[in-house]
Amino acid sequence: MVKNSKRKTINTIIAREEFCIGCRLCEIACITAHSKTKNIIKAFKGEYPLPDSAIVFEEKGHISFALQCRHCDDALCVECCITGAMTKKDGKVIYRKELCVGCWMCVMVCSFGVISPDITASKIKSKCDFCLETGKPACVEICPNEALVLKEDNEQD
């Protein structure tokens, strides 16, 4: 449905709600991975402010799942960014905070609703960078029940 004619993306994070146990460890892992120390205890005990998690977590009753940026091929957030803060780099949608003015065009067009605005700061709260530093998304790594999995080499034309 929300896909593009050319799908070049390699590595996509897939959310499987049947397997999500609602533990929200993905959010903890995301915050830790983007903290200064990258250490869960040091980060949560000693860092202020902590980065926001880039995950939008939905939960109602016993159903839950975690969503993060899909890094769309023809990303609307990149197309509609009026400053160039949202940009495509090596197939991933990267957010350059320093360029952002908080116009919310990306919030308007993100089909997955995973770009959360920080209205007071006029910036995006947090944007999934696919853990480019390590190459392994921390949310997928930590998920205890494979509710977040990495689908690789999904190349089709």
Binding site: V2, V56, L76, W104, V107, M108, V109, C110, S111, F112, G113, I115, S116, P117
Partner: peptide, 9 residues
């Protein structure tokens, strides 16, 4: 305006 893009979708 949280998740406005879902309406767009």
């Amino acid at each position: 305006i949280n998740r406005a893009g879902i309406y767009n979708l």
